[in-house]
């Protein structure tokens, strides 16, 4: 009920906005009231931080003529935030929302969650990589030694800690590529997976490099391979899976920004321009480097294509191909 009321208000505002914009020049659209940046996650997580960095850049470099309000709508792996935007912010050009791989995976696993088709993707900022780690005192020095040993034992002999659904998907990729199943032991975060590895409770981890960096430098953990097609600049010595003869596809997680569905072409252009400036800012570049991730500014139609391919990959890995 409240949704209907909000919808009417928002839609009314949007109509008032889009008619003159559509009739006149493309570059003319500008925000006229407070812009709301919706973060579909709780305060403090990785994606929340990135959204706040975006907000900081926008405010500091005065990219918008209006104030920016940050609104956390956490819940259900992004489903609550996406649902909020799709229900009460439809066609509203003054709302932007953070989206990432999780918001794409959640609806695949949870049918009642709204999918990314409910929003209009604008731009991607960064990609998180996945590496295969073993403990520093492990007998495996290379990925080949490790794979040979895995292949010589029965399925599921080896236990790998995971910090979330995306890590499990990486393990699935690896298992498929070597033709032997790895047993995933699921933890709630990369930090917990790391703890299990350091304590010797599991044989290895596939995960994002962030938590592992300090331990890589001290030699407490060792990286054997990275899931991408070219070498990762932050780890020049770590071979790619393909180099080591393992046929695993490029696998990375993305984080970007979207608008509500149904906004005007000009509005999309406007926001793509803003996001490009954000991506080129020093603050953003530093944030991405500090997080041991890769810069990857993708916008507009390219971003939409990218998302379609990602969706297909995720569905294949989760064993839930698209309906039809």
């Amino acid at each position: 009920m409240k949704i209907t009321r909000r919808y009417v208000l928002a839609a009314g505002a949007a109509v008032a906005m889009t008619i003159p914009a559509g009739a006149s020049f493309a570059q003319d659209w500008k925000p006229t009231r407070d812009v709301e940046l919706v973060i579909p996650f709780g305060v403090g997580g990785g994606s929340d931080l990135m959204a706040r960095v975006i907000g900081k850049v926008i405010v500091e470099e005065k990219l918008l003529p209006v104030p920016l309000v940050i609104n956390n709508r956490p819940g259900g792996g992004g489903a609550v935030g996406i649902g909020y935007v799709s229900a009460s912010r439809k066609e509203d050009p003054h709302t932007i929302i953070l989206v990432n791989g999780t918001t794409q995976i959640t609806p695949i696993l949870t049918p009642q969650a709204k999918t990314l088709t409910e929003v209009q993707p604008v731009a991607n900022f960064m990609l998180d990589d996945f590496l295969l780690f073993v403990k520093g005192d492990s007998k495996y020095k290379t990925i080949k030694e490790f794979v040979d040993d895995v292949k010589s034992k029965p399925d599921k002999t080896f236990n790998f800690a995971t910090g979330g659904t995306t890590d499990v998907m990486a393990i699935t990729i690896f298992s498929k590529a070597i033709g032997k199943e790895i047993n995933p032991v699921n933890f709630n975060s990369g930090g917990e997976a790391l703890t299990a590895l350091l304590g010797g409770h599991v044989d290895g981890v596939i995960g994002n490099p962030l938590e592992f960096m300090g331990h890589l430098e001290s030699g407490a953990v060792r990286a054997l391979g990275v899931f991408r097609d070219d070498r990762f600049a932050a780890f020049k010595d770590v071979p790619t899976m393909k180099e080591s003869g393992i046929d695993a596809p490029n696998f990375q997680m993305w984080r970007g920004i979207a608008l509500p569905k149904g906004v005007d072409e000009n509005v999309q252009k406007y926001w793509q321009g803003i996001m490009k400036k954000v991506a080129e800012s020093e603050t953003m570049k530093k944030y991405i480097a500090d997080n041991v991730a890769s810069e990857a500014y993708i916008s507009g139609k390219d971003f939409e294509t990218f998302l379609v391919n990602q969706e297909k990959l995720y569905r294949d890995l989760l064993g839930k191909p698209a309906a039809q």
């Binding site: 819940g75 259900g76 792996g77 609550v80 995976i105 959640t106 696993l109 949870t110 659904t165 699921n186």
Partner: peptide, 20 residues
């Protein structure tokens, strides 16, 4: 809410806001 191990939602009584 969502079972963190399997990603399946349980006992949410159809409400998205109960997923967490």
């Amino acid at each position: 809410g969502i079972d963190p191990q399997t990603g399946v939602s349980r006992f949410d009584f159809g409400a998205v806001w109960l997923l967490d």
